[in-house]
Nucleic acid binder design. Sequence first.
DNA 1: ATGGTTGGTAGCCAA
Length: 266
Amino acid sequence: MKIASWNVNSINARLPRILEWFDAATPDVCVLQEIKCLDEKFPVGAFEDRGYNCELHGQKTYNGVALLSKFPVEDVIRGLPGNDDDDQSRYIEAMVFPDDAEPVRVGGLYLPNGNPAPGPKYDYKLGWMAHLKARAEALLKTEEAFILTGDYNVIPQAEDVHNPAAWADDALFLPATRAAFREIENLGLTDALRHLYPYDVFYTFWDYQRGAWQKDHGIRIDHVMLSPQAADRLTSGGVDRTTRDPGFGSQEAKPSDHVPVWITLD
DNA sequence: ATGGTTGGTAGCCAA
């Protein structure tokens, strides 16, 4: 089964390109971030036509996440457990039941950006990461296969950014951010794409400004984190850079600044 | 050091 994550930066502004990618990549499960709309404004029909069940946790203007699955889902959770006073829609989770594999729990997340740092937005980011760590700890105790994937807004290491010095004071790369990410990883989760490609340089986001895409000045901030039971089933994975190209597929809409990441499990 | 680009919205804010 194929599981993907994509920060689409508005589902409605980008729908033709997104559908083009779905038709080509055919993920079984895909979590989306920054849908930037209320649930009733999400184009459910376009995805139902393609066989997806749509679970939504939308929000007006900002944020908003979705979990789309060709397989049945149960136990849908909207919002990060234990973070009940959070009014931003950044987390959705569900148990997925493939017809040809064991169930897997999928959490889709849009971790706060945190800039400017220091400041209240950065405090919110670190607090959110502490809640995510707690969720990972709780799920690990179940010994289930699970995946926590999405836009982490964390550059884990210097090799994950074109120019580390330029990002030294950014909330995505500050030592405290990277330490919080390592705390989650070191609970026993596998960074699937880094695991598959330990020595490659590859990015998942390029700023719209300064010709970052054309110069490949990117950062790796979209991650697929696997529980041990999920990591045992990992067979492949990748980053679909082509969706970032202005010439990709339908040109009725401009590209997202993020590209999809995906893995397969057996 | 600055500016540059998007989307959603009518708050120029968030990224």
